[in-house]
Structure formats: C-alpha cells, structure tokens
Design a protein around this nucleic acid. Structure first.
Length: 194
DNA sequence: GCAGTGATCATA
DNA sequence: ATGATCACTGCC
C-alpha cells in the first residue's frame, strides 16, 4: 500500500539554506484548498538566501517588520509582496537569529515564484505560520532523491544589486521533465533482467 | 524593451 | 509625509 507522505518537520529546515534549497528539489509542496482537497506540486526550482552576510538576502539590512520572521526559528513561511503584485513564498531556515530562507521559485506546473503563489492562492495569510498540515501548506519528502547530475546551479534571479553575492550559485533547478523521467523509472515494472 | 503596482523602509 | 526601491510578470 501507499505509505502516507512524510511531512517535512521543522528540523529539516534547521540547516544551512543552500543545503535545504538543494534537498527540496524533488520534494512536494502540498496545499489544502478551501474545499479540503490537497494539491501536490513537485518542487523544481529554489533559491537559497544564506543570512545577514549575504547581500542579496533581506536579512542583510537588519531586522525590520517585514523580514522579522526570517530571524525566527526554521520551518516557518516568509511571504512578502514584491513589485506591488507578486507574493514570494519562502521557508525560513537555520537557527533563530540567522535571517536565512529558501525561495520557492517553481513547483508542479508553475514556473516563476509569482506564478506559483498566484496558482496556489498563497498570500500574506501564510506569513509567519509554520509549514505544516495545520497551516494548510507544507512540504513532503521527495519520493526519490534527485541525482546530482540533474541539478543545475546558477546565480539567483533579480539580485544584481548584491555585489559579489549576485554571482553566487545559489539557485537550484531541475527540469520538470527530468523529474517525470525519474518517476517513470521508479513506478514502472522492473525490466526483466537480461 | 519596459510599464504596472503598492507595501516597505529610510529620511525628514 | 515623501520618495526610492523592489528575490516579478506580461505585453510591446
């Protein structure tokens, strides 16, 4: 029988953001709709924001009302409005006091952080809440780890202002069609051995 | 290529 | 109170 999907616990996020961003690839972003139905989207693009020393990270400007949740414990959502129209979905990582997080840039059929939140109906209501079933928005562990050769690392998008940090390879991408290939391999009947 | 859009934050 | 800035998107 199908095992119940494992909800990623807060401890999963209590690690360096780049590690979390990498391991979130292939994992599932799950959201419960108003009708109680659960939609699941496999994560295929993330970005890590490492902390106060990372000039692209909101936390590098110090504690403010907006970014306060980043300074708190790992495993909570950090959601903010960008350009007056787009909600950005992040999950806080690392120890309290370290303003680090992972931006979810793509999952399921949604490419781009603003499109993802629009598609899933995510907005400010989730800001500061823990990622978990109780909140209606959570992560589940990857059924199969994405092999390293399928993961591309690039500089983060839209952070050209961040000096040396603009070029840090902290964006993690796996092509969705590659994920599909993985899934097929996993679920297709084993080939008769030679 | 660039306008739209409005919360947020520093400055005053 | 005011103005600059923005971890983006869609249409030219």
């Amino acid at each position: 029988m199908m095992p119940r999907p494992a909800v990623l616990p807060a401890a999963f996020f209590d690690r360096p953001a780049d590690r979390v961003a990498r391991e979130l690839l292939g994992g599932v972003l799950a959201v419960r709709g108003a009708d109680g139905r659960i939609a699941r989207h496999v994560v295929h693009e993330t970005e890590a924001y490492l902390g106060g020393h990372d000039l692209a990270c909101h936390g590098s400007k110090g504690l403010t009302a907006r970014n306060a949740v980043m300074f708190g414990p790992a495993g909570r959502w950090y959601v903010y409005l960008c350009y007056g129209m787009h909600w950005m979905l992040n999950v806080v990582t690392g120890a309290p006091g370290v303003p680090a997080a992972v931006l979810i840039r793509g999952a399921g059929g949604f490419v781009g952080p603003g499109r993802l939140t629009r598609g899933l109906g995510i907005d400010r209501r989730f800001d500061g809440r823990p990622a978990g079933r109780a909140t209606g928005l959570w992560f589940e562990a990857a059924a199969v780890a994405v092999p390293r050769r399928l993961v591309a690392r690039t500089p983060r998008i839209g952070v050209g202002y961040a000096g040396e940090w603009a070029d840090a390879p902290l964006r993690f991408v796996v092509e969705p069609e590659r994920l599909a290939t993985l899934k097929e391999r996993r679920s297709s009947p084993r080939r008769t051995s030679r």
